[in-house]
Design a protein around this nucleic acid. Structure first.
Lengths: 206, 206, 206, 206
DNA sequence: ACGAACGGGACCTCCCGTTTAT
DNA sequence: ATAAACGGGAGGTCCCGTTCGT
């Protein structure tokens, strides 16, 4: 949707190239961050030429937006699918944190996509493409909460969307904090588990 | 000897100018962010000249670091003092969130200092000056938690430092989320209160 | 991967332009020296644009280093080839000074390349690129000495490498002196011949 | 003589301050080199204020020229006096190299004054103040040679001034080489001794 | 005489998005 | 389509020599 720029590729090969660009760009962005990555970095990493690059993405920004949409979407699906294997709403809710930790641990780029989102948000205008993925996460989490509440297993005096926003914000905030304080992955995981414990204690009515 | 130059004003007037630069710079950074702010912006906003700037700060980065240290320090003191007017540890702990919300509401720059910290952290090397303020917040919060636990009013099976890190990270994460999703202050306040409620439910043993 | 960019031209034309930049830059550096030469000088002299320059060399320093390597290498080969036309080691050794004088007389830039080397060495860090050419000269001269000694024509109680270092240092020192005292080429040539006479008297065993 | 700039100090205190500035400036120049030293560095090192500094020396360049004249003069006298303690001309000539090595070993700034000279020579115009000291060295050495020849102890078919120029140039060239190749003092001393041996072998008759 | 502030010039770096030959 | 070259703007740094109140 909302093809960011460039001519929409019409051939199968063109689409494959587009996907390829998204993947290599994601790796480069993950390594260097958005700002520190130049067009030439991306072009060199892709192996294409400048001309070809501009055929697919009109600018670095467009490419980054596409990367965010692509990665976010894939991970969202992956986490949700894994969570939904749990039988009960509460079990699903509980599975959320491990699923996300696992994602972050296994996909190196999953860590830095948030950073990419933030760097883009620093840019002049915040495009819908930047907000959409974050909103989707909130919606997914809110759904889990809502179902848990409906099942009578979660405290109902807290608004699901509010709660979901807090959880998503806290998760990303801890990622940032980990970067800023230069902590390691285990420390991050521990913090997230503490967050999860907090939620568990507060929400789960036994 | 032969310091790298910059600051260390010796007269009262010099100190006043230094502080003035710090404040005007904080305002400009708050409005535009670090990267989008140019030296010329800062110079124009201060009303001084390029030379005067160089006299006090060798670089934009130095200035930003000084701004962070200055603002963070002042707010830390202010919040802590206000919190400490409360009689009991738990009351102090409860006063934390309102105090921070109040700070953010009254001091426009308090909002964006975190953003400034993040932007600087994106830079090649994360200086200690960038990390220190965040660490101090965590320490202060951890102290409050610790005292509450000692008073037998807060659940003791959670590590104070862990918990403090989570709270600080969550708070900053919600600020970021507010920016990214372009929410307004009341929405942010509501989210923070939800976070506080979560903590209250989980921690306070009655 | 993702080289720091700059050069590595792939086509013949690209290579030609690179070489052209190297030559024009050498001329400008020779005339004005490193520091006094601005990027704009180089760009104007080349007739190309800023972008083209950046395409080939990331920085003024890189360009200067490349100039040094290029020129030094070519001259080294030229002098050595000429020297090696002589039949005996001693004759080769004796041909060295005339060959270098001739080089300096015919290639205006050969004179100032040493100056360029020195100016770059004044920079914070002395790169290997700066040292390498000088070391190569020493090695070449040392080889000539060694062969002369092996042929029983040169005094053997002096270390070849030591001697070569002294000769190279003296040669460059005389160039510098010529500049500082604002002497002319004939005066320089005379000094070098005096140096050669000194060496001849001291070394050649008859 | 030829007071470089500023008002000629008229009081004894003024003269003392001028001498003090020369010494501290020499130390700073020796440490950082000419170019890398800023006015503020010099002013800070002197402990004076900007105003006072400009009272004595109109610019960095003037100060550097004065430093060169001052240091060069002192060392010239020192070396010559030491050399002249030797009984015969040849002994005096032989004492020259040890005297200079000793000077360089004991006075750290003696090493870098040549470098300072060269850096200044790179500047737009080569002032007489830059050339004079070097010329004086040559004259002194030439005198020694001339006396040795008159005494019948040194080969007379080489022009004393020529020879002196070569020796001075070679000595300075070896200093430069030492810097460029990042050699240490012992290596430098060894090279200079090799140079001396060369001269000894070539010149001393008998 | 001192610290503060002036006022501005010069330079290098960075890199974008485009056009031109082949 | 590819490499080469365009063409330029924006920004940060550096620091000089001076002037201004005190």
């Amino acid at each position: 949707m909302t093809e960011p720029a460039g001519k929409t590729p019409t051939t199968a090969k063109g689409e494959a190239t587009g996907a390829f660009l998204l993947r290599t760009a994601a790796a480069v962005f993950a390594e260097r961050g958005y700002r520190a990555t130049t067009q030439n970095d991306l072009i060199a990493a892709s192996g294409l030429t400048k001309g070809a690059f501009y055929f697919y993405f009109r600018s670095k920004r467009d490419l980054a937006l596409a990367v965010i949409a692509d990665q976010h979407g894939r991970w969202l699906v992956r986490v949700r699918d894994r969570v939904l294997t749990q039988p009960t709403p509460t079990a699903q809710f509980r599975a959320l944190v491990p699923a996300m930790l696992d994602l972050v641990a296994t996909e190196p780029q999953a860590w830095s996509i948030t950073r990419l989102t933030r760097e883009l948000a620093l840019d002049d205008t915040i495009a819908d493409e930047v907000r959409a993925p974050t909103l989707q996460w909130i919606v997914v989490v809110a759904d889990l909460v809502r179902r848990g509440q409906a099942a009578g297993e979660l405290r109902t005096d807290l608004d699901p969307h509010q709660l979901a926003t807090v959880l998503v914000g806290a998760f990303d905030g801890l990622k940032d904090l980990t970067d800023i304080l230069q902590l390691d992955q285990p420390a991050f995981a521990q913090h997230v588990r503490t967050l999860a414990a907090l939620v568990e204690l507060a929400l789960v009515t036994t």
